[in-house]
Simulated scan of single mutants.
Amino acid sequence: MTLHPAHPAARSMRTTPEGLLWEPSDRWVRGRVGDTTVVDSRRPVLVWEPHLPVPQYAFPREDVRTDLLRPALHPPTGSHTGSQVFYDLHADGPVRPGAAWTFPADDLSGHIAFEWFRRTDTGLDHWYEEDEEIFVHPRDPHKRVDALPSSRHVRIEVGGQTVADSRAPVLLFETSLPTRYYLPPEDVRLDLFAPTDHSTGCPYKGTASYWTWRGAGDVPPNVLWSYAEPLPAVAAVRGRLAFFNEVVDIVLDGEPLERPTTPFSRMLREGSRSQGRP
């Protein structure tokens, strides 16, 4: 992340020789495993690693239940920037290996970070910013998500077949990602798709459920999704359906859009290969 010097956040953002970016946060953050509070901090810092698209929190040691941490028996390699010290977490239930670590940067030497990006099994179960539970990863204070109703004409094709046609979309604008087009269910050929048990969580939007294309062609699974109960900030997408722009063809107001390349592109390609598609 590079901010213009005039940006207000540029005055608080720090850079370390290891390539980490970090800044203090004023949010009260708590993390729990079962009924045990492992972290309770009013002085967290947000840290951006060069290879991860989202931030994570690190906490002063005195705000962490360090009595629950033991040096990792099998420290992971290559999962975070630099040479860290990893800890196994001994809290409620089974030991969680490699659940916590320290960054090598001198600026962050008194801080401990915990897994929760991608909601790995080694991470903490529940996280809260103030009194709101947060999922998957911390919200980026430099990222914005807007869901705006529109009357633009959106047509979606899969393998040359029209699968959706709408003049009442909600356009979702999310920093660093392509515009997503959320369409009313009645404007989507859901008979051409099959619901799956796949779901994902997003700290900005909520929990999504998915559908897979029934037809032939090089179409990854779970190409279509919906938020039945979105978070209040994007309530306008409730019950609507959206496609991955990366793998379908979208015609907007009569103009075909290019398929974007995003952090999801590799995941979608691998999903297609896993189904035996070329």
Rank of each mutant, 00 (worst) to 15 (best):
A242R: 02
P94F: 13
P17I: 05
R118I: 03
E255Q: 11
I250T: 10
G206A: 07
E132C: 05
F117N: 15
D125A: 14
R155H: 04
A235M: 00
P149A: 15
H126W: 13
S25H: 15
Y204M: 00
A99S: 12
H51V: 12
P5V: 14
S274K: 03
Y182H: 07
T16I: 01
G215R: 01
Y128W: 09
L268D: 01
A216H: 12
L192R: 13
A72E: 05
P53H: 04
E157D: 12
V234Y: 11
G254V: 01
R30I: 08
R42H: 14
R238Y: 07
M267W: 11
F114I: 05
K143W: 09
L231S: 14
S150I: 00
T16Y: 08
T37D: 11
L190V: 04
A6N: 06
E132A: 07
P232I: 03
R11D: 13
G159N: 13
R42S: 15
R32F: 14
D35P: 05
S199W: 07
H137M: 01
G78K: 00
Q275R: 06
L52W: 12
F173V: 04
R266M: 02
V170Q: 09
R65C: 13
R119G: 10
L192Y: 06
Y87Q: 13
S151T: 07
E49M: 04
I112E: 10
V163T: 03
H126T: 08
A105T: 03
P220K: 03
A113R: 02
V85G: 04
V158N: 06
Q275F: 07
G217H: 11
G239P: 01
D92P: 05
S166R: 04
E130A: 09
R277M: 09
S41I: 08
E130D: 08
A228L: 10
R155V: 14
A91H: 13
R266Q: 06
F103V: 01
R27Y: 13
V33P: 08
S151I: 05
G34H: 09
S25C: 04
